[in-house]
């Protein structure tokens, strides 16, 4: 008899708890969906990216990369990176078809060999060009890539941010968890904390200098990724954003990689 009472009491206590948890998951998912919906319809954009790598002792090296991205309805975006610097990789181009839970498709054009190579891209946790950005940090943000958990709202600079946890649902992620700060007005991704496979804080991404394009779409002017474990950091500075430039599927064909300039 006392046993059933205790169980009943425990049930009473647990019930609102699990409903709360479900609410937090639902709210997290809704915010992620709203963020994706806000950015929908950008069609395509091009931009220039300067990537400055800094190691623990403060040595820097710079990469210049031109980016072209095509929005794909119902799947991850298609994206092209064309390298202008360092000089030894000038003309190298990387084409990525990002997908939600499936591994991305990826091709590399190597100008020294004049050869397009399709490369295995299952490992999303590998570093992009020796930087502190992993491939998975730069891919398009598809809702189904994560499960979510809403934490709280709090001020972030001049805005108010939704703070969410998200957990990678795709295989081979380098993270167990990310904590994301999204502003509540336009869903600008202000900050992300990345926790590694051992659940320790690995990296922090901070985005700033947001500008609005076509009167709607927001993009950051700079993204700073610091690795707390290695002391390395990478600064991405974005310039010359252009939207709806008329890029088509054909421009993202692997066979086009050879004729990019």
């Amino acid at each position: 008899m006392p046993d059933t009472r205790i169980i009943a009491l425990l049930l009473l206590l647990a019930l609102p708890c699990s409903t709360l948890a479900q609410d937090a998951q639902q709210r997290g998912l809704e915010i992620a969906q709203a963020a994706k919906a806000y950015d929908r319809g950008f069609t395509d954009f091009t931009a220039n990216m300067t990537m400055t790598l800094k190691n623990r002792s403060g040595d820097t090296s710079t990469r210049l990369i031109r980016i072209r991205t095509l929005e794909v309805e119902g799947d991850g975006d298609k994206s092209l990176s064309i390298f202008d610097e360092p000089a030894d990789v000038k003309g190298t181009a990387m084409l990525t078809y990002t997908h939600g839970l499936e591994p991305d498709d990826q091709w590399l054009y190597l100008p020294a060999l004049k050869r397009v190579k399709r490369i295995s891209s299952r490992n999303k946790s590998g570093p992009f060009m020796g930087s502190t950005f992993a491939f998975e940090d730069l891919g398009s943000q598809e809702v189904e890539k994560y499960t979510y958990n809403y934490l709280r709202d709090e001020p972030c600079g001049e805005w108010t941010c939704h703070v969410l946890e998200r957990f990678p649902a795709y295989e081979h992620s380098g993270y167990t968890r990310q904590v994301v700060w999204l502003d509540s007005k336009a869903y600008r991704l202000v900050k992300v904390e990345f926790y590694d496979r051992k659940k320790a804080l690995l990296k922090t991404l901070t985005a700033s200098g947001f500008a609005q394009y076509l009167g709607h779409y927001w993009r950051p002017g700079s993204m700073y990724m610091e690795n707390h474990q290695t002391g390395k950091s990478t600064l991405l500075e974005w310039t010359d954003y252009q939207f709806k430039t008329g890029l088509t599927e054909r421009d993202f064909s692997s066979q086009k990689l050879k004729s990019l300039q």
Binding site: S120, R122, N123, S125, G126, P127
Partner: peptide, 14 residues
């Protein structure tokens, strides 16, 4: 075939 071991020994090397 080529078989790839990604992120060997928790490093970023493949």
């Amino acid at each position: 075939f080529e078989y790839t071991f990604f992120g060997v020994l928790d490093s970023s090397s493949d």
